[in-house]
C-alpha cells in the first residue's frame, strides 16, 4: 500500500532552523494567543451590555499593569498575525514563492508588525490624555 516515492515532511531533528519555519511557528502561536484575546473581547462586550459597574470592573483589570502588558502583547500578536496572514494569502494566490522573496517578505512582516504596534501604542498613550 505504501508509496515510497511520496514527498515526506521535513524531519524536525535534522531540519535547519531558519526564518521561514520560525515565522510559521510564530504565526500559529500568535493565532492561539489571539483566540484567548477573542475571549477577552467577548467578555468586554458582555460587560459593556451589562452596565457601568460590570464594564468598569473589566476595564479596571485591563488597565492594571498586568492587563496593559497583556494588551500590548495582544496588539503585537494582532499586527503580526494580520501582516503574516496577508503574506499567506499572497502565497495562496501563487505570489512570492521564491526563497529570496519569502525571506524578504518575512522580514518585512516582522518590521511592519513592530512599527504598527509601536504606532498604535504611541497614539493610545499620547492621545488618551491619561
Amino acid at each position: 500500500m505504501s508509496q515510497p516515492n511520496r514527498p515526506l515532511s521535513p524531519h524536525l531533528g535534522v531540519y535547519r532552523w531558519q526564518i521561514s519555519n520560525t515565522l510559521s511557528i510564530v504565526h500559529r502561536l500568535t493565532g492561539v494567543m489571539l483566540s484567548l484575546g477573542a475571549v477577552v473581547f467577548t467578555v468586554w462586550l458582555v460587560a459593556l451590555a451589562g452596565g457601568p459597574d460590570a464594564y468598569l470592573g473589566v476595564v479596571g483589570v485591563l488597565r492594571s499593569p498586568l492587563g496593559v502588558l497583556a494588551l500590548a502583547g495582544w496588539t503585537l500578536c494582532f499586527f503580526y498575525h494580520l501582516c503574516n496572514g496577508i503574506r499567506h494569502l499572497c502565497w495562496d494566490a501563487g505570489l512570492g514563492f521564491e526563497i529570496a522573496q519569502a525571506r524578504a517578505s518575512g522580514k518585512a512582516v516582522v518590521a511592519a508588525a513592530v512599527v504598527l504596534t509601536t504606532a498604535f501604542w504611541l497614539v493610545v498613550l499620547t492621545g488618551s490624555g491619561s
Binding site: 475571549v39 467577548t42 458582555v46 459593556l48 451590555a49 451589562g50
Partner: peptide, 18 residues
C-alpha cells in the same frame, strides 16, 4: 462566545442595559 457577544451588541443597540 459568538451568541453571548452578538446578544450583547443587540442589547446595546436596543438602547437598554441588560
Amino acid at each position: 462566545l459568538a451568541v453571548a457577544g452578538a446578544w450583547s451588541v443587540i442589547a446595546l443597540s436596543a438602547g437598554g442595559q441588560a
